[in-house]
């Protein structure tokens, strides 16, 4: 299982330097770490996924002594590990760059992890069922909907999102966090099981 997770890093090792360099760049212009970690984690996970798809690697992986359950599980476990690593890296760089006492709020960690998990919950089963190229179409369509919404229906959409995040960060009710965490974990595990089911029925 660990081999499969390491594999996702190895096949991206040529662009790893780009990930590392651009994160520094974004931090220099003060992009929010939550946003950076979220975007990089999702991109990293999806890029690994599309590499498997593009290069017929599914045939290879399924011919090696792995079960389909392991292959899918490696993606879900890997997603959490990669997000953790991006988070660690981003906060460490941020600490050195901004030379300020970066207070790593557990709420911020929770928020980032939660966002990645929600994204993966929806993306992976769709990717397993269809091809990632359909996902791109969906993403473009969603972006279009977002733009329309922002411009016509919800004035100051970004501001509202920011306010929502702010609200989340300042919430004092611990029970609410616990509740949100449980729901996200529940969805994630559900998505995991669904992906295994889809993948086990797949033909290569």
């Amino acid at each position: 299982m660990l081999n499969l997770i390491l594999k996702d890093v190895l096949i991206q090792k040529n662009i790893l330097i780009i990930y590392i360099a651009t994160i520094i760049l974004y931090l220099l212009v003060n992009v929010s770490p939550v946003f950076i970690v979220f975007v990089y984690s999702v991109v990293f996970i999806l890029n690994a996924f599309s590499n498997d798809e593009k290069d017929n690697a599914n045939i290879l992986l399924n011919s090696l002594p792995y079960t389909r359950r392991e292959i899918v599980s490696s993606k879900y476990i890997g997603a959490l590990i990669f997000t953790g690593l991006f988070m660690l890296y981003t906060y460490v760089v941020n600490f050195f760059l901004n030379e300020q006492e970066v207070v790593v709020l557990w709420k911020e960690i929770l928020l980032t992890m939660g966002l990645v998990m929600i994204a993966i919950t929806f993306i992976l089963p769709i990717s397993y069922k269809f091809k990632t190229k359909y996902l791109t179409i969906v993403a473009v369509a969603l972006f279009g909907v977002y733009m329309v919404m922002v411009n016509y229906f919800v004035p100051n959409f970004d501001g509202k999102v920011r306010a929502l995040v702010q609200k989340f960060m300042t919430l004092q009710d611990l029970q609410l966090y616990l509740f949100a965490t449980v729901i996200i974990v529940f969805l994630y595990v559900g998505s995991w099981l669904l992906s295994i089911r889809i993948y086990e029925r797949k033909a290569f």
Partner: peptide, 23 residues
């Protein structure tokens, strides 16, 4: 197999690194 099953953007050495621990 008749088809290519290798990751295109890495070397054979890396390919070995991926496959070796499986066996």
């Amino acid at each position: 197999y008749d088809d290519n099953i290798f990751y295109e953007n890495i070397t054979l050495k890396d390919m070995k690194r991926i496959i070796k621990p499986a066996y």
